[in-house]
Design a protein around this nucleic acid. Structure first.
Lengths: 164, 164
DNA sequence: CGGCATCCTTCCAGATACTG
DNA sequence: CAGTATCTGGAAGGATGCCG
């Protein structure tokens, strides 16, 4: 079995609030960090958002999530199942059929995730604009630096020709 | 420059709702997916949560986020800056000093992120319990399978000795 | 169909050293 | 102090093949 509890990130609600209510746990392996890591996962968000509609079969999920390999989807579902967010039901038919659906816990998480998606949809234009502006700025700075370098070279050449 | 717009995940608000309001874009490189990818980033969440309190210097962030390398912190901050979520202020002093703070856009995102963290804190016990239960179940299934295998071997041995 | 095991590649994170 | 540049190991992730 692959290790599901590897490194993680870290936000802990230690209530010894020094300068405010929030306090960060410096440890990497803090409980809350591990959970956030799961939420911050590339595919988990998508699976949870999809399963809110209704329960889905493995292949249905696979079809709806473009770019996911069956390996990654399986891993993601196992993680979510382990965390009690998704339930897995095997129908012993032939061919086999496996349904996934959100648990009660998973549903409460979905509300939060939904807010995140809504935020993203609402602000995607602002973000796109910010990116364009940033890229333009970087480009401008680069050409400015290049112009400066060219000038330096020019001066150096003049000095050299003068000393000849 | 490293490629910041690599692969992404995918949730798009196509409003041609077939069976509900939500509809997934099948394309991997959908706009909303890219943004979610940024939010789903290991360190971004932490940086945004930290910066909500007040603006922080690079080294302050580094100290407060255990396990982040300066390379990753730099990358994360650049991404966030590009997306217009964080502003970067360089004070031309010596030694140099760089302050980071949330933009207005970043602050709106923080509210959502905060909800996520709160959810995590609220439900961490349930999740821990679910994990323990899951691991126990897996262990039980494993030993059951082993017992079955042992039984099979036993039968096979008996058959063999009988035919002798 | 829905997996798991195995291999293999690619990419990314971390360590290190150097600069303004 | 706050970066950038470069190298390298390991892990994430894809492809394939087999099983229940």
């Amino acid at each position: 079995m692959e290790d599901g509890t590897s490194k993680s990130l870290g936000y802990c609600g230690d209530t010894d609030g020094d300068y405010d209510v929030l306090q960060w746990d410096t440890r990497e392996d803090c409980e809350v960090r591990q959970i956030l890591d799961r939420v911050a996962d590339k595919w988990s968000l998508l699976v949870i958002a999809l399963l809110d509609q209704r329960s889905l079969r493995f292949s249905e999920l696979r079809r709806r999530i473009d770019g996911v390999s069956q390996r990654m989807l399986t891993r993601t579902l196992r993680h979510l199942e382990r965390d009690g967010l998704v339930s897995r039901t095997v129908h012993p038919t032939v061919p086999p059929r496996v349904d996934y659906e959100l648990t009660a816990l998973g549903t409460t998480l979905h509300a939060t995730i939904r807010a995140l998606v809504t935020w993203t949809e609402t602000h995607q234009n602002e973000i796109a604009a910010a990116r364009t502006a940033y890229d333009a700025r970087v480009l401008a700075e680069q050409s400015a630096a290049e112009a400066q370098a060219a000038e330096r070279d020019e001066i150096a050449r003049n000095v050299l020709s003068g000393s000849r």
